[in-house]
């Protein structure tokens, strides 16, 4: 068993979460769950940023995370508004149903 944690482990962890997020995006059809998967991706990025930041002793990374969170919050507000708007009109938040625009 490993005695110490290297930055590699954080990268593994973050990238795994990132890929799980992408997987979620790929296999789900519910817009909200999809959006949550994207949030998962953002979280993995945050984690990686903090890891790098801590390792280098540079505050910039953590500041960046702070901004990402702010942006994510704003994005969620808008995104959920969009989803609600769509739901009002179509009674569905299945992205498979949103296919009027094609070809």
């Amino acid at each position: 068993m490993l005695k110490e944690v290297f930055i590699d482990h954080y990268i593994y962890l973050a990238l795994t979460l990132f890929c799980i997020g992408i997987l979620g995006v790929l296999i789900r059809r519910n817009a909200i769950v999809l959006f949550m998967s994207i949030e998962l991706m953002l979280n993995s990025v945050n984690l990686l940023l903090v890891a790098f930041s801590s390792r280098m002793g540079d505050a910039a990374g953590q500041i960046f995370v702070f901004f990402i969170m702010t942006v994510a919050a704003a994005e969620v507000a808008v995104g959920l508004a969009i989803i609600v708007m769509l739901y009002r009109n179509t009674r569905s938040i299945d992205i498979g149903d949103a296919n009027k625009l094609k070809w």
Binding site: R29, N30, I32, E39, V76, L80, V84, I93, D94
Partner: peptide, 20 residues
């Protein structure tokens, strides 16, 4: 943020069955 998600899900009254 997650509460917002939860609220929305509740608001839209989504259940597990209606996702193909």
């Amino acid at each position: 943020i997650m509460v917002l998600f939860l609220f929305t899900i509740m608001l839209l009254n989504l259940s597990s069955e209606n996702e193909p």
